[in-house]
Every structure is written in structure tokens, then in C-alpha cells.
Simulated assay, not measured.
Amino acid sequence: MSDDFSARSADTAAEGAEGPDLDRARDGDDAAFTRLVEPLRRELHAHCYRMLGSTHDADDALQDALLRAWRGLARFEGRSSLRSWLYTVATRTCLDTVERRGKRALPVDLGPSSDRAVVGDAPLGDIAWLGPYPDAGLGDGRLSPDARYEQREAVELAFVAALQHLPGNQRAALLLFEVLGFSAAEIATMMDTSTTSVNSALARARRIVAEKVPSRTQQQTLRDIGDARLREIAVGYSAALERGDADGLVALLTEDVTWSMPPLAHWYRGLDAVTDFAVRVPLTGCGSWRHLPTSANGQSAVGFYLWDDDAGAHLGWSITVLTLRGARIAEITSFIGRDHFPLFGLPASLP
């Protein structure tokens, strides 16, 4: 992540701790408190998602953090910016959640890939699954185009998935330093530890993340291929699924493509395995598909709908996030579940 982005984010997002709204909020004016925190709500939510790997958990954590901040506002002495103090409260809230719930996973974390399609694969309900993030509006209105670009880079699927392999303190230190631009000394105060401990946590976190995150981000790839080509790829993938067109689908994929579908445990790697799965399950075994384009984790995504006889409509099935390498699809991650659709502002069903 860029140090320039960290500085820009801190400069543009920080709100002055002085002023009548702070005084009113300390006196119990909840409308004044809302005005203080509203400009920071979106970036705080993204921080909670990076920490927790779930939009639903991020919703709960942010709500809890703001309630804690509201109740503890009298203790805010203005020695740091309000933004720094709110990040302290949000980070500690997320660390409490991490301690209770542990990390979130993708199917690739659970075991080796399957060589052939597993028909009738059953969801695993006892796994805390990583979820997609609706990035529409991330950094809207207050950040430069480059800063918005880097905010999306910091919610990319590979990066958030890699964070889940870190203990909570390392996760928090890396995000606060690399993404948000706080100094090691500031982080030590925020996390109630020593600067030495923060630097040690950062060193370990960087090693693990570097092993798991591609050197080239999706934002760099998307910039290179351009919006028009990106739309062509997403539309081509969606149309091939709707038509049952195996050749059209395969033409869009890399040789080492992967396809995973949380909460299903089985996943597939390589063109042969992915093609076998695609032909036997979504292309011929599921029925009629419809789709709507969207964006998730700073990446191209598609909301897929599957025909349901009882409902007499296509019901929301998955938010599928596409990870590209060049102009081909290298990873397909289909987050199955109707509960994802409201988060993306997508309808529950299509005709």
C-alpha cells in the first residue's frame, strides 16, 4: 500500500477535534455526534471489514465502536485527532471480535483442490467464511482519484484473505501502518503496547502477506486493460453461463484458473478441473441463469440469479468476484447466499 495514500487519507479524512459540534456531542447531543462521525463512517467500515473479513461483522463492529465512542466521548481529550481516536475505538472493537470468533476462510484454506466436479456438494455451516465487500462509494466525495484507487486496492480479495492468516494484533498493526498511515508510536498507543512490539508485529505480518498476495494488484491490472475491456470480460463470462457455452467460458480463463464457492468446501484448480465442474454443474445441471453487474472488493463482480420453480422467478444465488491476470480470468470466487444481495443494492429476484 502507498505511503502517499496514507498521508492523503489522514489529511483529507481527519476532522478537527475543536468546534461547537464536539462540545455539543460531549453534552449529549447525538445529532452533533452523528455530524462528527459521518464523514469517517465509510472508511471506518472498510477498516472493520479488512480486520474481520465479513461485511456483516463489519456492520456490527462499527455500530458497537460508535456506541462505545459515544459513551466514552467525555474521555476524549483532543490530544490526537478525532479520526485517530475513532480508529483506536474501532480497532479495539474489532480485536475483541477476532478474539471471540477467530479468522475467516476461503475453500482454498481448507484443503487441496478437486480434480473432478463434486455434484451435490453441501454447504459447510461450521466454517466462518470470508465474505465479499460492496465497494460502491468507497472514498466518495472526499478523496482524490488516486486515493480512491488505493482504498479499493486495500479491500481486494487477495489482500483481505491474506490478512485472515495473521493474528489480530499483527492484522491491526499492518492495516494501521501500511493502509492508514499511522506511525508505529501512534499504533502502540492505540493498541496499548510498546513501539518495539508494534515493529515486531509489522515485520512478521509483512512476511506472511508478501507470501500470499500477488505482486501485481487488481487495480494495476484493471487500469491496464481499461473499463471497456473489463466490461467485455464480465459480460462474456456472464453470457457464457447463461447460454451454457463451455467454449465461450473457457476462452476467458487462464490455464491455472481457480473456482471456489464458499460455503461449499470443494474448489477447483486448472483448466481441466474447472471446465469439468463448469460443464457438469452450472452450465448443464442448474437450470436457467440471469445476472446483474456489480463491483466487489475493488474488482469486477456479477450478481447471479438461478431459476426457482416454486418462486416462479430467478432468485439471488451468488455474488461472483472475478480476479484477472491480464485480460483473462485467473480466479472465480462465487459467494453463495441470498443474504449478500441487499448489501450490494441488488434485487432479491429477477423475472
Rank of each mutant, 00 (worst) to 15 (best):
S9L: 11
S9W: 12
A10D: 08
D11T: 01
A14G: 15
E15T: 14
A17Y: 14
E18S: 13
G19V: 07
P20V: 11
P20W: 10
D23Y: 08
D23E: 15
A25E: 02
D27F: 04
G28W: 03
F33H: 04
R35F: 01
L40G: 05
R41L: 06
R42P: 00
E43M: 11
H45I: 01
R50W: 03
R50M: 10
H56Y: 09
H56A: 15
D57V: 07
A58N: 11
A61N: 03
L62C: 04
Q63Y: 01
A69M: 01
L73C: 07
L73R: 05
A74E: 13
S80E: 13
S81N: 01
S81H: 02
S81P: 01
L82H: 01
V89D: 00
V89A: 02
R92S: 01
D96K: 03
V98A: 13
R101Q: 09
G102W: 09
V108N: 00
L110C: 08
L110M: 13
G111S: 08
P112G: 06
S114Y: 05
S114L: 03
R116W: 04
P123A: 14
D126G: 00
W129D: 06
P134G: 09
L138E: 12
Y149G: 05
E150P: 00
E150G: 01
E156I: 08
L157P: 01
F159L: 15
V160A: 06
A161N: 02
Q164F: 05
Q164N: 07
L166P: 05
R171Y: 10
A173N: 11
A173I: 09
L175Y: 03
L176F: 03
F177Y: 10
E178Q: 12
L180V: 01
G181L: 03
A185E: 13
E186R: 12
I187E: 02
A188W: 00
V198T: 05
A201Y: 13
L202N: 03
R204H: 15
I208F: 02
K212M: 11
Q218Y: 05
Q219A: 13
Q220R: 14
R223I: 14
D224L: 11
I225T: 06
G226A: 13
L230F: 08
S238L: 08
A239Y: 05
A240W: 13
L241G: 10
D247T: 08
L249H: 04
A251N: 15
L252E: 14
L253H: 05
D256T: 10
D256E: 08
W259L: 14
W259R: 12
L264S: 05
W267C: 03
W267N: 01
V279A: 12
V279S: 06
T284G: 15
S288C: 00
R290D: 12
H291A: 12
L292F: 10
P293W: 09
T294D: 00
T294K: 00
S295P: 00
A296Q: 11
G298F: 13
G298A: 12
S300K: 02
S300P: 06
A301V: 03
H314V: 02
G316R: 09
W317C: 02
R325K: 14
R325C: 08
R325A: 10
A327S: 13
R328L: 08
I329N: 01
E331A: 14
S334C: 10
F341R: 06
P342V: 09
P342E: 10
L343N: 06
L346V: 11
L346S: 06
S349G: 06
L350T: 12
